[in-house]
Computed example of a mutant assay.
Amino acid sequence: MGGVVEVVIPVFAMIALGYGAAKRKLVSEEGFRGLTMFVFGLAAPALLFAGGTRPHEGGGGAAVAILSASILVFALSLLGARRVFRLNLAEAALFALACVFGNSVMMGVPIIFAAYGPPGVPPMLGILALQTMILLGMATIVTEVGLHANAPWRRVLSASLTGILKNPVVLSVIAAFIWMLFGLPVPGVVRRTLELVGAAAPGVALFCLGGGLAGISAAAAWKETTAIVGVKLLALPALTWGLALLVGATPIETAVAVTMAALPTGANAFILARRYATGTDRSGAAVVVSTAISVLTLSALIGHFRGILP
């Protein structure tokens, strides 16, 4: 239990510090925006590229399990939002995204590194690349179709793919895969520089997450929010776990896949909702509530997996 506390408590302590700094105006909104740009545009990509270009094996089983589970849950959530909550297609797409898209960079990267160390990197890299491209792509396309039913499908698809491929996190993971595929070396001075820059990512990301939560209300659309949180923190991890066992994923792949699936709703779900001015309160509330409850669910999962891993 002590090992779990050492992993989980610092993570949520950093989130709390960011939240407090925002509430007390110790860091301005512009300051948080700059720190967030630093994390997404530089520190996190450096961390992921440095980790991805180290010799490693495996990781495919984790990506297959969580991606298959996420696509299935996305489709069912989309259908449920339309029939149960009577949401239009664009609203339902963003509802479904909040059910499956976790806070992979802000929380996933620091938690996986802290809980499972270097062996957790290969499964995490595969998940980050595919999940970001496919899930954000699906949600963006369905939302665009819902808002612009008469728009040419080529324009919708092109705009969606362009936006995703401009994501620095996706680009860094793809670059790492290509680097390893061709067996290219990373000079020592370059690797050390990447590691120095990347070392800032986990702490700053969590601090910025806390700052972002300070401006979001958790009281909006409570019925839809409850459904999102239940699916995201319980149903998706359970289905991912079952699929990981079904495809014969290794213990570390299973641990990483299930932990990544159990992450709270990611800020990107809220950002996409704000971009389309659709379901913003619902997505924002899901981020806040799922982050708070994930203190318990992530602690339980990490404690279990750290107990059975060699």
Results as ranks from 00 to 15, higher is better:
G303I: 02
L87A: 05
E224S: 14
F95M: 11
R306D: 08
G3P: 02
A69K: 04
G303D: 10
I134M: 10
P55Y: 11
P119V: 02
G210F: 05
A227K: 04
L48S: 01
T140L: 13
L309M: 09
G3H: 13
A199G: 08
S28M: 09
T240C: 08
V5P: 05
V142T: 01
P310D: 09
T278V: 14
G211Q: 04
V258Q: 04
M1Q: 14
V100C: 07
S172P: 02
E253C: 07
P310Q: 07
P187W: 11
I178R: 11
P251S: 12
T225E: 09
S77K: 08
I134T: 09
G163V: 05
V186F: 10
T259G: 05
P237I: 04
V145M: 14
V186H: 08
T143P: 01
F270P: 00
A261G: 08
V288F: 10
A199Y: 02
G52F: 03
R86N: 12
V173Y: 00
A214G: 03
G41R: 10
V258P: 01
A273T: 09
L298K: 03
A176I: 00
N103K: 05
G284P: 01
V189K: 13
T240S: 02
P202N: 07
G248M: 11
M180S: 15
G51I: 01
V5L: 15
T297E: 09
T36A: 12
A92R: 06
G120T: 03
I66Q: 03
L67C: 13
V295T: 10
E253N: 06
S70C: 09
K23D: 04
I302R: 08
L209D: 00
A255H: 05
L243P: 00
W153V: 13
L76V: 15
A21F: 13
W153D: 01
A75F: 13
A96E: 09
L213Q: 05
V186T: 14
N103P: 03
P187A: 08
A149P: 06
A267P: 01
P122C: 05
D281W: 06
V186N: 11
M1Y: 14
F101V: 00
S77N: 05
V256E: 07
I127C: 08
V288K: 02
A249T: 01
V170T: 04
L239F: 12
A69F: 11
T225W: 02
L301M: 06
A200Q: 08
A92P: 04
M37A: 15
A65Q: 09
A262C: 06
P123S: 00
T280K: 13
S217I: 00
W153T: 13
V173G: 03
L72C: 13
E144L: 12
V11H: 08
T193A: 15
L263W: 00
